[in-house]
Nucleic acid binder design. Structure first.
Lengths: 343, 343
DNA sequence: AGGGTCTATGTAACCGCTTACGGTGGAAAC
DNA sequence: GTTTCCACCGTAAGCGGTTACATAGACCCT
């Protein structure tokens, strides 16, 4: 590994000049600059990031908080990969890397899990991370508040947080839900139920507002018994649907706040001997992969999943370079009409 | 941020002693050790990883090579999340973190993509990474050879590579495929076709061997026209199935080398007016999420997906601490019987 | 000619930790 | 009573960069 010193010697300049060539090129004479660059290339010079980080107190990495040893280890994030794709590509553009922080069992006894956000914050300092991206892999959104308050720049994905250097990216959940209900209404449905996420969860609550708005718009009554809450995962959608179908006047259409729950609803409907969409119309939310492969294919409100990653990366970078808090980012949704509504 | 020096001063010892407390505790007197530890805790001391890496030339990170700006940006890894879960948890146990390397657009013009493996290798040196985990996100397995030859410790997931410090983890594909065929045979099928991955791809080739073995075992003839190759992705499974169904004597059962292709096959069968499993039995490979949600649910050969991650992490750690090359790891598979075979 | 400016570069301190080497004191060995 | 050894700890030299400050020369102006 060639070092800056070697380049300096070969070029007959000082290490300071070599450093300047890479960090403030404009301050060094064009001729020397090119000489240094040429030699650097010949030697295959790679700046030592540890040294750089040590002296600048800034690494080119941002941390990813994604807790996997969760209460329910079988839980999966519905679209982690898309998120990562977006994150990574946007971060790359700034020369930044994503560090997936270890969550436990650190040999030096310094743990890091959502139960102990301090652990992550410590890691952030140890590695001089520029900030943290928070990905919710369950319903422990509350824990994110601790991060937001810690002072390290962080942006949460699809979870509303607030703090001195914290922000979040989310979809326009209200209008997404609204478009779903409008679609259902346009197909003639008037008994439209919804399966929500955990109460208190921001995106879920917003989707409920959108749902209410849609009913209002259509002049339909809001019925408490048509709103049943789940946890975004499949089983809860199944259970919720069973409850809905047991109602005296069961709904003819269901808007689920996630595709996973919509699939659960589909299964429940099938188990109850109902045909989808003839007997029960279904709309989901997310547009994850399985939405297009279940039968009937799911009509759903698509989120810009890689867009989340891109927006998160941009927000983090803005906070790093800018300093202050960033505005939350709200991404548009798009209704994807498939077969589960019989349109 | 408290530094080692501060602790040293407060404890009336030298920084060397503080360092020893954390790195070679047995060489320091118990009393002083505890004093240092106590003060360190009070100050919330976090060792500076950059400084440590700088002086030891070893970070506690390993790199992840997962190329996303691929020729086909819409491609997704079928079970990335499970892989990451396994990787992360096993790495955590050693106090290591996973660094997702940027793939392009580095501000300093030092790119890294599979087209330029050198870029990744450079990153490895810059950050003093312990090694690289290679994840195949397409069919560019060939590119992995360059990594394997580069001398940096690396382990590939489900791609056979070889090099001075390279190894890989894979499933026992032969017996996995064998169990699939046996299952089909046991159900009375004698016209069994297979849809393979890319020819030359190691796991795919192994699955073909397992397939042949299964036919032999059952005394069934091997027919060239019953072997058609795909690329592991859905569309290719669909196309392959169309070809199979167009045969004079079409198969009554198909073993697809991936679930995605099996789903493609399912769609093709449905489009051709065939019922699954009555008219065509289907077995997949992987046991990804959609396998259980398609209708009929897919019988498939399950791979230990988080196990890949765990094994990869262990292999990397072994290479880092041990030095030499590790043996490839072969994980067992498990036949998951669902409804696509009508058993 | 002397002073002021500006550009290009060198000098050296510093970032925080690790570690080879050496020193000290007391116990054990002779 | 030396010598030897060992446990414990301090000194100081790195690791490879960054950057404040100093310096040297070129150029311009009065």
């Amino acid at each position: 590994m060639a070092t800056g010193r070697e380049i300096a010697q070969l070029c007959g300049v000082s290490v300071a000049t070599v450093s300047r060539v890479f960090n403030q090129p404009e301050t060094v004479n064009e001729e020397t600059r090119e000489r240094v660059l040429r030699v650097a290339k010949e030697l295959g010079y790679q700046p030592n990031e540890s040294a750089r980080a040590l002296s600048t107190k800034q690494s080119t990495m941002i941390g990813l908080v994604w807790d996997t040893d969760h209460r329910r280890p079988d839980w999966r994030h519905p679209y982690l990969q898309d998120l990562l794709i977006g994150l990574k590509s946007a971060l790359s553009a700034h020369g930044y890397h994503l560090l997936m922080l270890a969550t436990s069992g650190d040999a030096r006894e310094i743990g890091a899990s959502l139960a102990d956000p301090v652990g992550y914050v410590n890691m952030t300092r140890r590695h001089h991370l520029g900030g943290l991206v928070l990905i919710d892999s369950g319903s422990d959104a509350e824990a994110f508040e601790a991060f937001a308050q810690s002072g390290v720049p962080c942006v949460a994905v699809d979870v509303a947080v607030d703090g001195p250097k914290a922000t979040y990216v989310t979809s326009d959940n209200v209008s997404g839900a609204l478009s779903a209900v409008r679609h259902l209404v346009s197909l003639g449905h008037s008994r439209i139920a919804t399966i929500t996420g955990p109460v208190g969860n921001q995106p879920s609550d917003a989707r409920v507002s959108g749902y209410r708005k849609g009913l209002q718009e259509a002049g339909l009554p809001f019925r408490d018994e048509y709103v049943v809450s789940g946890d975004f995962y499949r089983a809860s959608g199944n259970a919720a649907t069973q409850r809905l179908l047991a109602l005296d006047e069961p709904p003819t259409a269901v808007f689920a706040a996630s595709d996973e729950m919509a699939v659960g609803a589909l299964l429940a409907a099938r188990a109850a001997g109902l045909r989808v969409p003839q007997d029960l119309a279904l709309v989901g939310f997310d547009d994850i992969e399985i939405a297009s492969v279940v039968d009937p294919a799911l009509t759903t409100v698509a989120q810009d999943k890689p867009g989340f990653g891109v927006a998160a990366a941009k927000a983090i970078m803005a906070m790093i370079t800018g300093g202050g808090r960033e505005q939350p980012v709200v991404l548009p949704t798009r209704l994807v009409v498939r077969n589960s509504c019989g349109s």
